[in-house]
């Protein structure tokens, strides 16, 4: 991370800055490339994937993936469809099981033991392409459910928490509506608030804007950008290259289950190393 981009991120358009960002920056601005391997659980590594492979039957979806996400980092994963990027992000909270290699999240190694997986999921928020809000609950209840039922937060406190995060995504006035009454962009922002209510250590975004109308993409991306500015650790599968360029610390390009290239956004977009990356970028940035 260059110094200029740190400054740019901290002093964003609103002059927004908070304690989390202050704390997170210095750690992640150290040379993460060289120090990312061999971290213990006490380090600032949030997600670490080592030689991860996954098969669907005979089809190999992921091949020897190595990826480290450190505290406060924003990683964007992009690539053509079918390249395994969604599969990879879903492995990080074990919605998918990997067959080989090792994934460590928050110091806990992911395997099939329910207890550990549950512990990891408590600390990992996930936002889906199709929102997956609970349609039979109000927006407020969608946000209150997890803190109340998982963490045992008292109802009044959970309500306060929910309203705080609904304000954070700018829709506190929709709190008592049902998801079906909201627009796509509003639903996705509720989904973000719902995940935030668990106060996760890292947020995973699985193509959060892909099923939205163009007008609503902006409101969701704005929410994500402001989250990033607050120092939230984020892993984001997206085709929004503008978002990747302005927010990401690193862009990971995947193709056919492999990480082809991994670079800082500026270098990634201006000086791609691999032919496949160049082709992808030329396709996606054509219009």
């Amino acid at each position: 991370m260059t110094v200029s981009s740190v400054v740019q991120l901290k002093g964003g358009p609103n002059g927004y800055s908070n304690a989390a960002a202050e704390v997170a920056r210095p750690e992640s601005s150290s040379d993460r490339r060289s120090s990312s391997q061999g971290q213990g659980p006490l380090s600032d590594t949030v997600i670490e994937a080592k030689k991860v492979s996954k098969w669907y039957g005979a089809f190999r979806a992921l091949t020897d993936i190595n990826l480290t996400v450190r505290k406060g980092e924003r990683v964007v994963i992009c690539g053509p469809s079918g390249s395994g990027k969604s599969t990879l992000i879903r492995c990080f909270n074990r919605l998918e099981a990997h067959q080989e290699g090792e994934i460590t999240v928050n110091g806990i190694r992911l395997h099939s033991k329910m207890r550990d997986v549950a512990e990891v999921r408590k600390n990992v928020g996930m936002v889906f392409q199709h929102f997956n809000l609970f349609p039979h609950m109000t927006v407020l209840m969608n946000c209150m459910a997890a803190p109340m039922w998982i963490k045992g937060v008292p109802e009044a406190e959970a309500r306060k928490l929910a309203i705080k995060f609904l304000e954070r995504v700018h829709i506190p006035e929709q709190a008592n509506k049902y998801p079906a009454q909201l627009s796509g962009g509003q639903q996705q922002r509720v989904a973000i608030a719902r995940s935030l209510c668990m106060e996760p250590a890292v947020m995973l975004f699985d193509e959060p804007t892909s099923s939205l109308d163009p007008e609503m993409v902006a409101e969701v991306l704005d929410t994500m950008t402001s989250l990033a500015r607050d120092g939230m650790t984020m892993v984001c599968v997206t085709h929004e290259m503008g978002f990747a360029r302005s927010v990401a610390d690193r862009v990971v390009f995947m193709d056919a289950g492999l990480i082809v290239e991994e670079n800082k956004p500026h270098d990634f977009f201006t000086n791609p190393q691999h032919e496949r990356t160049k082709l992808f970028l030329s396709q996606i940035l054509k219009h």
Binding site: L95, R121, V124, M126, F128, N132, F134, I150
Partner: peptide
Amino acid sequence: IDRGQWEASRSLGFG
């Protein structure tokens, strides 16, 4: 019920 409901629920940590 849509698979996504299970995924959302499990990803929030519900058993």
